[in-house]
Simulated scan of single mutants.
Amino acid sequence: MKRILDIVTSFFGLLILAPIIVLVAWKIRKNLGSPVIFRQTRPGLNGKPFNMVKFRTMKDELDAQGNSLPDAERMTAFGNKLRNSSLDELPELWNVLKGEMSLVGPRPLLMQYLPLYNKEQSRRHEVRPGVTGWAQINGRNAISWEDKFKLDVWYVNNHTLLLDIKILLLTVKKVFVKEGISAEGHATIEPFNGSSNE
């Protein structure tokens, strides 16, 4: 039932939201240039890599060594508006339709975090990653990594179709309230450097 909900909702979501998706893409092209879509390899179910797609919110600026500048230096006012509205996440419906993501599940993080998880934290990959999740409606980026992973694993142990519907409804509320979008003192969130708990 969870996969059926994902397929039906993502398919009709892409159809219904197509005008908004096109408008946002045009605004990004106008404000940030090309590319409009940000693609990045993320770990999916059982840690299997997939290419996550979302709208670009930052400038592609590099330092003298060719490394990306910090998020705070690449983020623009326009990009902040996209993130605050969660419109940058709309292309992920394509990942959901393809079966690489689910509407609800732990957020897909960076590949380099995989060896940093302890055994319990790594259980977040026992389900498909989600566009939204239990951690997103309970603090999002404003809570610690440890708390976020505890919420992710709680979802792995307790997820049901009714819980998914509850999370989706609360996500809509969170989008309008604009809570927990960034960690305190960071443009997005501080990097995860491993857990002290084995």
Score class of each variant (00 low, 15 high):
K150L: 09
I20T: 14
K174W: 01
L151M: 05
D164M: 05
N193F: 09
F78Y: 12
V172A: 15
D147H: 03
Y113I: 03
P106C: 06
V177N: 00
S195E: 09
R124F: 07
P129M: 12
K98D: 01
T41H: 09
L5E: 02
G105L: 04
K2N: 03
L90A: 06
T160G: 08
L161V: 15
K166T: 08
K173S: 01
V22T: 11
N51H: 04
K81C: 10
R29T: 02
T132V: 11
L168A: 02
N138I: 03
R107I: 07
E89R: 03
D60H: 07
A183D: 06
G105T: 03
I143E: 01
V24N: 12
T132N: 03
K150G: 00
A183N: 08
P43R: 03
D152L: 01
P19H: 13
S196Y: 04
M75E: 14
K119L: 08
K2E: 11
E120P: 00
V175F: 05
Q121A: 10
N80V: 05
V127L: 13
E100S: 07
R123K: 15
N67M: 13
E120W: 10
E184M: 13
L90R: 01
I21C: 08
Q65R: 14
H125N: 05
W145L: 03
G180C: 08
N158E: 10
T76V: 13
K174T: 15
H186G: 03
S85N: 05
M1N: 11
T171K: 04
F176H: 10
K173H: 07
K27I: 12
S86G: 08
I7T: 13
R74Y: 11
L62C: 07
I20N: 00
F176Y: 09
A18E: 06
S122Q: 09
M111A: 02
L114N: 08
L62G: 00
F149T: 02
L114M: 15
Y117R: 02
K2D: 07
K30N: 10
A72N: 14
L161M: 14
G105C: 02
I16Y: 07
W26H: 09
N193D: 14
F149M: 12
V36F: 03
V156H: 04
A187V: 12
W134M: 11
V177Y: 03
W154I: 00
L169S: 09
K148H: 05
E198L: 14
K27Q: 15
D152S: 05
K54Y: 11
Q65N: 15
N141P: 04
N157V: 07
V127K: 04
I167L: 09
L116F: 05
L87S: 07
M101R: 08
G105F: 03
W26F: 15
W94R: 06
F38P: 00
V36W: 06
N67D: 14
A142F: 03
E100H: 10
S195I: 10
K119D: 15
L93N: 01
I7S: 00
G99V: 02
T160D: 07
L110T: 12
A183S: 14
F55E: 11
G139W: 05
D164P: 10
V172S: 08
P108V: 11
S122A: 15
I189P: 02
V96W: 06
L90C: 02
E120D: 07
P91G: 04
